[in-house]
Amino acid sequence: MDRRSFLKTLAGGAAVLGLGRTAGLGASPALAQDYPDLVAVRGTSVTAMYDRALEALGGLGRFVGKGAKVLVKPNMGWAVEPSMAANTSPELLSHIIANSLALGASRVSVFDNTCDNWRNAYGKSGLEEAAKAAGATVAPANEEKYFQKVTIPGTSRLGETSFHELFLEADVVINVPVLKHHGGAKMTGALKNLMGAIWDRSNLHWNGLDQCIPELSLYRKPTLNIVEARRVMLTGGPRGHGDSQYLAANMLLASTDPVAVDSASAKILADSGINEPGYIARAAEIGLGQSDLSRLSVQRLTV
């Protein structure tokens, strides 16, 4: 299925749904109601936690169709070893890629607009090697030519920004950040991870991170957010230093709602005294999702 026909199917489905609603039939129960809004799994194996979380969400097949172009967006911005927990774990990334390909995805791509030199970051994080071995295309994001300018509707600060072409082309975006402390934004999770999908981060720093981070998701929300919160960096983030403190949270969170998943993540950090970042409330305000977890169905599991 190419992108156009996929979009047509989506549009068709939405039209049918809309008709159904006006006819008073309601949404098909299989579409949304059976699945929890947020799944949190505790365990030590990141792949086992992922499998359990996706099982609860109805399987990755709910999001990845045959022939779909999938983008898996990890955090691989830092030229540090996996033990620093500054980047997404290679084993989680390769597991998601393999899962997508097994479901018949036509292409799985991976990129990040890195903070450190991209070759060093792709290499030292172990993510390029893992992604390639799992069958994904690892794309560069180190030059402006890979990015396309778009106008984001409904923003008050950002207006326009340039997204990576693979982010714009993908039928399915699976957002896989690693949860950690962030010196500027306080926390990096699902919403913040989109800063690696755009070209000009400096513009966001200049215009205020709390205002701009949520506005990125106004253009396109990831299809699915999977937050790795196994060993959570509590100080010295996002890069991490030799004296960084960590929290063995041993958790993985998954949701289609980036605000819900960030809200739960913020509670994990709050456990160690880190305040909730300002961008979560702002994201809820502009309608990106639900920050009040009491209003959501949350499934808590252990593997």
Binding site: A40, R231, D243, L247, A248, A249, S263, K267, I268, D271
Partner: peptide, 18 residues
């Protein structure tokens, strides 16, 4: 040389803090 201070990882107070 950068500061190095290896501290034991903290653990969560409750199983799910939300």
């Amino acid at each position: 040389p950068p500061r190095v201070l290896v501290t034991e990882d903290l653990t969560l107070d409750e199983e799910f803090p939300f």
